[in-house]
């Protein structure tokens, strides 16, 4: 197990390094004088000089990078040009919102996809299977920016069951928080349900043809036990891999719903920053989100070694 994880960890470090270089280079992609770009042409020379120093633009590139990286390691990703909030602070306040959204949406996706796949895969191509397969196929065509407005129109504006906007921290009022979380979470969960269901279903169908399932039956185990204890785990590898890859589109989804529901998450902050051309904030958020994504991949690789003991052998 050690060797495999060490290899993955080295990979993690390499990828993180490259991400940091790319994100760092972003500011240097700006055509012309970056201070003019950032501050606009009409700002004072004094402000421009401050920014120049803040960005360290008078130093060689590699030196600028080490300074920037060193600061980043110490939790200093710069400050917002607009309201002088530190990027770290923006991330710290936004992260709980975004993470909660992703967690709830994934819980919903697993709670629907897994039991449905377990039921349906036992009798493939029957009516229940056909209905679920066809309808989850439709879910694939429902990205958050399509579903979310419809959900708001129907359940918030039309029926008034849920608030259309707003966010209350879970620690303040858990019930209000969950009530507000339902629509945005559901809006980003559609694609996940479809992907998880379809992968798990097709893997379960082929697992159920295996000898060890017949063996489990010949022991006299109940169908429920066979499905959960024998068939599910060896069928869950693609599901797990997909869950890792899916995080990417979930991040995109949180951006959409945070904007639509006015939830102060990372995506909301990022979109605001982009609109205001608050470059350091964009840079800092991109770095942290990209690295978080890579770390999640690593964690999933780690879960693999638990779910499938054979992985370690490779």
């Amino acid at each position: 197990m050690g060797k495999y994880l060490i290899r993955r960890f080295i990979q993690l470090l390499v990828v993180s390094f490259i991400i940091s270089v790319l994100v760092f280079m972003l500011v240097h992609l700006l055509p012309g004088d970056p201070t003019t770009q950032i501050l606009g042409a009409n700002d004072t020379a004094a402000n421009r000089a401050i920014l120049l120093k803040q960005l360290g633009l008078n130093l060689p590139l590699w030196h600028q990078y080490t300074i920037w990286l060193n600061a980043a390691f110490h939790g200093n990703l710069g400050t917002s040009y607009l309201n002088h909030e530190s990027v770290t602070h923006i991330l710290a306040t936004g992260a709980p919102v975004s993470i909660e959204l992703i967690l709830i949406s994934q819980l919903i996706a697993f709670a629907i996809a897994i039991p449905l796949a377990l039921v349906v895969s036992r009798k493939p191509n029957r009516w229940l299977d056909n209905i679920s397969t066809t309808s989850t196929f439709g879910l694939l065509a429902l990205p958050p920016f399509v579903v979310a407005p419809i959900l708001v129109a129907v359940f918030a504006v039309g029926l008034g069951w849920f608030p259309a906007t707003g966010y209350t921290p879970f620690t303040q009022a858990p019930l209000t928080n969950l009530h507000e979380m339902i629509l945005p979470s559901v809006a980003i969960t559609a694609g996940s349900i479809a992907v998880y269901f379809r992968l798990l279903r097709s893997d379960l169908i082929s697992t159920l043809q295996q000898d060890f399932i017949t063996m489990a039956r010949s022991k006299g185990l109940s169908t429920t036990r066979i499905m959960w204890r024998h068939a599910f785990r060896p069928s869950s590898f693609s599901l797990l891999a997909a869950a890792g890859i899916n995080i990417g589109s979930l991040i995109a989804g949180t951006f959409v719903v945070e904007l639509l529901f006015a939830m102060p998450g990372i995506g909301y902050a990022l979109v605001q920053a982009v609109e205001q051309r608050d470059y350091l904030v964009v840079q800092g958020i991109s770095l942290v989100v990209a690295i978080a994504f890579v770390v999640i991949q690593f964690i999933i690789d780690f879960i693999f070694t638990i779910v499938d003991p054979r992985v370690v052998r490779e």
């Binding site: 790319l22 992609l29 920053a273 964009v282 991109s286 994504f293």
Partner: peptide, 20 residues
């Protein structure tokens, strides 16, 4: 290609679009 794919596309695209 593995390294490039480890990047969440949406974040990369947003960042690049912002600056470009």
């Amino acid at each position: 290609s593995f390294i490039i794919l480890a990047f969440p596309a949406i974040v990369a695209v947003i960042a690049i679009v912002t600056f470009w």
